[in-house]
Design a protein around this nucleic acid. Sequence first.
DNA 1: CCTTAAGTGGACGCGGTGTCCACTTAAGTC
DNA 2: GACTTAAGTGGACACCGCGTCCACTTAAGG
Lengths: 182, 182
Amino acid sequence: MPERADAARNRAKILAAAEELFTTRGAAEVTMEDIAKAAGVGRGTLYRRYPDRAAIAVALLDEHERRLQEVLLRGDPPLGPGAPPAERLAAFYTAMVELLERHAALVLGAEVGHSRFTTGAYGFWRTHVRVLAEAAGAADPDVLADVLLAPLAPELFLHQTSRGVPPARIAATLRQLAARLL
Amino acid sequence: MPERADAARNRAKILAAAEELFTTRGAAEVTMEDIAKAAGVGRGTLYRRYPDRAAIAVALLDEHERRLQEVLLRGDPPLGPGAPPAERLAAFYTAMVELLERHAALVLGAEVGHSRFTTGAYGFWRTHVRVLAEAAGAADPDVLADVLLAPLAPELFLHQTSRGVPPARIAATLRQLAARLL
DNA sequence: CCTTAAGTGGACGCGGTGTCCACTTAAGTC
DNA sequence: GACTTAAGTGGACACCGCGTCCACTTAAGG
């Protein structure tokens, strides 16, 4: 059964309104009611599809993340398979910083603290990095994967950029880290 | 003007009750009202000193953190000054993992997401690590300091241990990281 | 049309937050 | 040891956001 026409219309309105609010105000300052009102929709309609803010942010991010995941699995080196692990990790860092830069507010909305690690996306990044660490012969790839992903925490990224650090410098530092560790 | 006797008594009761609640239930599941009731004081009394949960957790952590900070500044090598940067960083990682292990619930209560970076403690750790990075001739010590501290995020630590990873393995991985980077 | 089931939206109850202020009590003064 | 006063106390209160629930609306197939 396909989605009903009015439902599809409202979903589009909700996502558009949420993206607007997230990026202008920051995810923490947006309530469910705000989104409903901005979308011209009742609270019940909002909750029908999205149980909380995180779900909306995840939906907004889905497309962008999926694209990167696709490239990691089947794209050209060094992002995709074929290049040595250290170079693949460096390319991954570069891509992730760019993704953070463009969608930091959304990522922050989707991953409130602890919940960060339980999203499907984190699991994907984690597996990818662990495989790279294994290929490079790391001692404890399982733990190292989490450690390598830690500097990409959205809270940290926002803190650094708000202190005036340009994303390019962050990416450069991470690339050096990749070169030294794998 | 010194603190009044009844005020001091209540402060002790509040801190004791809060520590008990934080460690048994986890910081997220504790409300201000819970703490007030457990301490046998009114809400107003609680808010007089501590505007929110974070302030209480910070007060509880203060002593432990201060002790480590003291050792970093004036203790024996390798934790204190004198040893090469890589070894000092490795020792710092070991000490921090131990601190997390003992007080993870408190740290989590004190540093809810973004607020982590605005506490005085984070600033101290950051300065310490930046100095080590500088001494080791790192390209961008300012950014590297944040990157090196990222794996110590309490949310990550709790996620790893709840997945069954023993703290010793985390510490070991971090020590290797220190050896390779500085 | 008519039916029906998905979709809608706002009223509602709940729980936590932070404030406010009338009362209490510690501690200095004579 | 009564008196004063200012810090300290605690609970009532208003507010806000969350999530649910259900009577109503509307799309879409027969």
